[in-house]
Nucleic acid binder design. Structure first.
Lengths: 206, 206
DNA sequence: ACCTGAACACCGTTCAAGT
DNA sequence: ACCTGAACACCGTTCAAGT
């Protein structure tokens, strides 16, 4: 059946053009690359809610082409920030060799917060993706959560984690701190994030 | 001068209609009331980003009338949620008589988080307003911050607050927790907020 | 003084039509 | 298979014109 329709089309349809080994047509590859570059610029300038039509225009393609490559906004976001988020995920593994498990957690949360803060509005997308694991960005977040779990398990084993807390709680609060330090409050946002991470780890009262 | 133009207009312009003691024309009062009712419904249904045109339509007035009464979206939000935010502010004063200063802080932060969570997207507006005190919503927030300061000073006096923390830090994190528990994560959001407040107060590690 | 509703420039998204 | 660009329904916001 599959064969039949393919054969029939091969007799009728024109040559679809050169195909690289990956199986993706050359013009599609080009469009995708241009879209990603335009999205990177737009997200850096206007945050994650940058205009889709504008991104397509700046990439020199029609809006429908953008939708063909990235059906939901989340897909485009994942394509732009997914790799660097994966780097943060990988960092968690490296930090497992760190002698002090609390220092390891602190360093990792700082890296996560810094990453989320690099694109305005990304905290909202991450929070959404954490709740919907079966999505493009959600899959990256699931990996991040798994990495966090390893760090947290190590804390539990050395009895340094407050009972009842989960790795989800920590990632959620890291995202919340990234959100809070991304709203143009006066002062250095980096220092402010650091300060809030301190409060998160050691508490407000005693 | 003032007198002159007023006199001149009184000769030319038609009777502007009945004026209540407040100095506001009756139709304006009516429009304002209908707009607020429509906004309350719309915010409850769609959150704080509900369509302005739709609110005007449901209030039975033109869009420009909405803008005349509430020039910026923030003004409408402040008119809708300002009073109940003031109630939270007032609660801080009542809680100063509470014997345990930590319990007082906990109860107040819980009330603040619950309030912000009652309207979707309000956390973003509050965060923005905290950074811009000279705005409609900002003035309410300034009062809230002042109230928080009293609770925090009491904590400091009994040496129960971690050194280096400010009332701003606590309000910021309360807003962040409200934001984090407003993103449709699985589970009961009330319980989740409570859990995160615990972590905020007592810390993640030890 | 206040309201009206048409209008503007934009937005996200989809479509039939092309190659 | 992929791209095009016109089109749709919406949005926030402003305007000249009315009463």
């Amino acid at each position: 059946m599959e064969w039949h329709s393919t054969f029939a089309r091969s007799l009728i349809v024109d040559d679809p053009g050169p195909r690289p080994p990956g199986g993706v047509r050359a013009d599609a590859r080009r469009s995708r690359a241009r879209l990603l570059a335009a999205a990177r610029t737009a997200f850096a300038a206007d945050g994650v809610e940058a205009s889709f039509n504008e991104i397509a225009r700046r990439a020199g393609v029609g809006p429908a082409t953008l939708y063909r490559h990235f059906p939901r906004r989340e897909d485009l976001i994942a394509a732009v920030v997914g790799e660097s988020l994966d780097e943060v995920t990988a960092l968690a593994g490296d930090l497992l060799t760190c002698t002090d498990p609390v220092a390891a957690l602190r360093q990792w949360i700082t890296a996560l917060v810094d990453h989320i803060r690099r694109v305005r509005g990304l905290a909202d997308e991450i929070a959404r993706a954490l709740a919907v694991p079966d999505s493009t960005l959600g899959r990256h977040c699931t990996a991040t959560l798994a990495a966090a779990r390893a760090l947290v398990t190590r804390l539990q084993r050395s009895d340094r984690l407050r009972p009842g807390l989960t790795s989800d709680d920590l990632v959620t609060m890291a995202t919340a701190i990234a959100w809070a330090t991304d709203h143009g409050a006066p002062g250095d946002p980096d220092a402010r994030a650091d300060h809030l991470i301190d409060m998160l780890l050691h508490g407000a009262v005693r």
